[in-house]
Design a protein around this nucleic acid. Structure first.
Length: 558
RNA sequence: AACUCCGUGGUGUAACGGUAGCACAACAGAUUUUGGUUCUGUUUGUCAAGGUUCGAAUCCUUGCGGAGUUGCCA
């Protein structure tokens, strides 16, 4: 009898297991701390899945906390979109929504506390002077001439900073740590800066704002966060994070643990670059289906479950890796194969006339909704004398391995009949305008006929008289370069063919009932979803992702 | 040549001193009323050199390579 091995856990969950086993904590509290200055992207989704996932698995909680300490960059618009995205991903913060700005007065008191302990001082140096005196990676910094002000003077000055008696940048409050510290973050970091700006929540109540470092750990402590999970670039901030916890009367002792952020090939992820794509109109907006934003992915038709599965498969480590976008697409296909209803749609239509089929006859065939779940039943698809098929599914002079329709050849029209091509009609310029076929009544429903005849291909079709006209948008990767951040300007690597619009698509009538938010399969083509731009007059579908296509792959190799 | 962190197939991720496994990708085949799905098989890996040990991806030493850090951003 073999016992299945326990599922392997990432290093963060192992730490949590130990902390729970040792009794250091008896429950877990994590947090997702976005700054409301932009839209969430799939990298954030990784962090959301980690933090909220841990809360679910351990029966703990995960706080949503907006890190809103910089009024010049932040806005409520972002708060709302961030909340929507987290919910869409399938997570719930319950009552635990917080704002760092709720702690401003507590943080102010703690700053005063540090001054009284002789651990903070008001500095009059300009930003430039501070930079010069900070030293660099190899050389120690120089202490500020204002470093040894008296407690009274510091208290007075800090009070005046708060009251608005100074202009932006005139003074800052700094921690008094060590100007020669090998970690630059410890060289008397700034705690408070003066910013006369309207804050999206506190209005003009404050004109001094705490820095990230002076806010984050203390906020964690105030919320009794046990494990504060962040990305690798905060590793160098951990000593400072702990310095504040050591020197302030905080109510709890959170632990910061860093993990590697998500990166994907053929994708840019930095907020700055995504913003640039939007502002300079390389994409239609934050929710352009080509964007790696949560809203873009949603509009593209990726299911939330696929994102969650993807985050599970990439794991959590400290190793800076680049994930293959194919892995994400695989997660998407895996979910959609299970969940998407099947329909027929012709993207690039060419007309087929079934010459031996009665002119005004219409038959309805039963077509399976999802072959993975036959119990879901069937839908009715109308068939008539005039049909559309995919231009790619016909070749007048086919290569050897081409199984689809060509002169003299017979194929199955999915769920309908075997049709044989007898004639090709062309216009004056030689373009094919119609394909004339005959059907075999013995193959009704697409069944093999009694004579045992077989065909090598099944193709999709739409009845011309019943078709819904639609626009279909096909997306390809936004960047051609595997690492668009490398080799100069990332904009140079934009894929000029990342979007192609097909305005003459023909849809099976059932497709008129697909609702926004649902992703379906167009058989043999891929997964598609109605776009936000869709209207009764003009349905618009986005291609979420294509089906694996071994025929196309074989062609490309030649 | 500061400090911190990280090196396992093409990509990502396991193995916690005891057979280097899994997923994706690639390739080959079987099945198929989607050239989809499913199934089977194949190829490819512990950064390097020493050391400890019966035994090292794992522990130690040195080297090599990569990343982050010099905002009054987060």
């Amino acid at each position: 009898m073999s016992v299945p091995p326990p599922p392997s856990k990432d290093f963060i969950r192992e730490i949590i297991d130990e902390d729970l086993a040792s009794g250091k904590h008896d429950s877990t509290v994590t947090r997702f701390p976005p700054e409301p200055n932009g839209y969430l992207h799939i990298g954030h989704a990784k962090s959301i899945c980690l933090n909220f996932g841990i809360a679910e698995e351990y029966g703990g909680r995960c706080h949503l906390r907006f890190d809103d300490t910089n009024p010049t960059k932040e806005d409520v618009e972002y708060v709302d979109s961030i909340k929507e995205d987290i919910q869409w991903l399938g997570f719930d913060w319950g009552d635990h929504i917080y704002f760092a700005s709720d702690y401003f007065s507590k943080l102010y008191d703690w700053a005063v506390h540090l001054i009284k302990e002789g651990l903070a001082y008001v500095d009059d140096q300009s930003a430039e002077e501070m930079r010069e005196n900070r030293g660099d990676l190899q050389t120690p910094g120089v202490e500020s001439p204002f470093r040894n002000r008296t407690e009274e003077e510091n208290l007075d000055l800090f009070e005046k900073m708060k009251r608005g008696e100074f202009k932006d940048g005139e003074k800052v409050l700094r921690a008094k740590i060590d100007m020669a510290h090998p970690n630059l973050n410890m060289r008397d970091p700034v705690l408070y800066r003066i910013v006369h700006a309207e804050h999206h929540r506190t209005g003009d109540e404050w004109c001094i704002y705490p820095m990230y470092d002076f806010t984050h750990g203390q906020s964690d402590a105030l919320e009794y966060v046990t494990h504060s999970l962040c990305t690798l670039e905060f590793e160098n901030h951990r000593p400072l994070y702990e310095w504040f916890l050591d020197n302030l009367p905080v109510p709890s002792r959170p632990r910061q643990i860093e993990f590697s952020r998500l990166s994907l090939n053929y994708t840019v992820m930095s907020k700055r670059k995504l913003l640039q794509l939007v502002q300079e109109n390389y994409v239609s907006g934050w929710d352009d289906p080509r964007m790696p934003t949560v809203s873009g992915i949603r509009r593209r038709g990726y299911p939330a479950e696929a994102i969650r599965n993807f985050c599970k498969t990439i794991g959590i480590t400290k190793y800076k890796s680049t994930n293959d976008i194919a892995l994400l697409e695989n997660s998407v296909r895996e979910v959609l194969n299970r969940t998407a209803s099947r329909f027929m749609a012709v993207l690039d239509p060419i007309k087929v006339i079934v010459t031996n089929y009665p002119e005004d006859q219409v038959e309805e065939f039963d077509a399976v909704i999802n072959p993975e779940y036959p119990e879901l039943g069937t839908r009715k698809v109308p068939f008539s004398r005039e049909l559309y098929i995919e231009r790619d599914d016909f070749m007048e002079d086919p290569p050897k391995k081409f199984f689809r329709l060509s002169p003299g050849k017979e194929v199955r029209f999915r769920c309908a009949y075997f049709l044989k091509c007898n004639e090709v009609v062309k216009d004056d310029e030689g373009n094919i305008t119609e394909i004339h076929c005959t059907y075999d009544p013995e193959t009704r429903g697409g069944e093999n006929p009694p004579d045992g005849r077989k065909v090598k291909a099944t193709i999709h079709w739409v009845s011309a008289a019943h078709a819904i006209d639609a626009e279909v948008r096909l997306y390809d990767r936004l960047f051609q370069h595997e690492a668009p951040d490398k080799d100069g300007d990332f904009l140079q690597h934009l894929n000029p063919e990342s979007l192609s619009v097909l305005s003459n698509a023909k849809l099976e009538p059932n497709l008129g009932k697909v609702e926004l938010g649902e992703t379906v399969q167009f058989e043999r083509l891929g997964y598609f979803c109605p776009d936000l731009d869709t209207s009764v007059e003009k349905p618009v579908f986005n291609r979420t992702v294509g089906l694996r296509d071994s025929w196309a792959k074989a062609q490309k190799k030649k």
